[in-house]
Design a protein around this nucleic acid. Structure first.
Lengths: 211, 211
DNA sequence: TGTAAGGGTGATGAAGAAATCACCCGCTTT
DNA sequence: AAAGCGGGTGATTTCTTCATCACCCTTACA
């Protein structure tokens, strides 16, 4: 197998040199370029045509996220692995949205880093376990956001009553509205949740945890 | 260090037994219970009080996602690692939303599985590299969804013109509206995007990829 | 067979968002 | 000082969504 061609981008010269020697010790890899900031990186990448770019986030001139965006604009298939100390949510989510193929912390073990690079090279994505929880949290939040706004507040009230097994008439008296209104709310709930009857709506609502 | 107490839930008896002997061979782990479906699992968990539950998704009676939801309802801190062959998006995202602490494929290497369990035990989350890309994709989609709906269609039109460097007057003539209207649209754009001027708005829009 | 319950359709007033425009201010350039 | 441009404030019209209600249909069952 051919060696994986790598470009290392990091403003910390010491770290960059250390990382490069580490990679060069591994027979799988070959470092074909390095840069101390995003601006330089774009030039180096243009010339070196690497398989993978290891990209720091905190950098002067052009930071990692802007650099990533610029890279993506030119080549949507270029593999980019963020390698940073930042566990900041904005950096993390920002990198993902900008199209990073992975996000690993600088304190990763060499063996771990090697596996990560090979995974990314083979087309997969990798996250450090330390940041994976935050990503999952982001997924949960966004799914909840998707649910929020789907139903109006009143409709959720009605849905809660439904979940308690109340009939149309009971709900009407509890909420001080007419039975007709309750039925209309339920109709809208069924439409919005894309279900066919009350029971199914309650089941789905329980699953979406909006009771 | 104490051994990590594990419960294995999988309807495939052969796989379950194999997994259990594998785990028992490792000094770090101790399997304190097993179950062939979600229903059984809930009982077993109640009794065995494991540190971690390895949970399959495709199961009869009560599937893995429903089981996970039930577990979370009782104990929001219980660590649950999904261990499945399913690369289905609904299963994956569903598991995350339901609160899984990890999602790994059954074809994982023993050494890999061991590391994963230890990571989850120590409070982190883990995804198989094979599914990580899909999760990142989901994050990107949901962030885009968050952007959609932020600006009205008309406002996005104005924003596109701004990005082309057009002045208020030029935009007005292109869109067949008065300059005042253009200014108002721009004002709303600035407010909604939480930026202070046109240039910043364009930069942020480019970053959010809504041009 | 009539009555209760789930489900479907149409309609209306109130509230809020969207799109439009007029007018004002401050800075820069000429 | 006049003109051009970016930016701020108020006001109007239109459209959509929400919450409300009336009326009709089908099924089950007493």
């Amino acid at each position: 197998m051919n060696r994986v061609r790598i470009v290392v981008v990091d403003d910390h010269a010491l770290f960059r040199r250390g990382l490069i020697s580490l990679l060069e010790e591994m027979p799988e890899f070959h470092v074909v370029g390095e840069a101390a900031n995003g601006q330089e990186a774009l030039t180096v990448i243009e010339r070196a045509r690497p398989d993978i770019i290891l990209l720091d986030i905190n950098m002067p001139v052009l930071d990692g996220l802007q650099t990533l965006a610029a890279i993506r604009k030119k080549d949507s298939a270029q593999k980019v692995l963020m390698l940073t100390i930042s566990q900041n949510d904005d950096d993390l989510i920002g990198a993902i949205v900008a199209g990073a193929n992975g996000y690993v912390l600088k304190n990763a073990e060499p063996e771990m880093l090697k596996n990560t690079i090979l995974q990314v090279y083979s087309g997969n994505s990798v996250l450090s376990p330390e940041v994976t929880a935050r990503v999952l949290q982001a997924v949960r939040r966004s799914q909840n956001d998707r649910n929020r706004g789907l139903l109006s507040e009143r409709e959720i009230e009605v849905l809660k009553c439904l979940a308690r097994g109340q009939t149309t008439a009971q709900i009407a008296s509890v909420l001080f509205i007419s039975e007709n209104t309750v039925k209309t709310h339920i109709r809208h709930i069924l439409e919005k949740m894309e279900v066919n009857n009350r029971a199914e709506a309650v089941a789905k609502a329980a699953q979406m945890d909006l009771l």
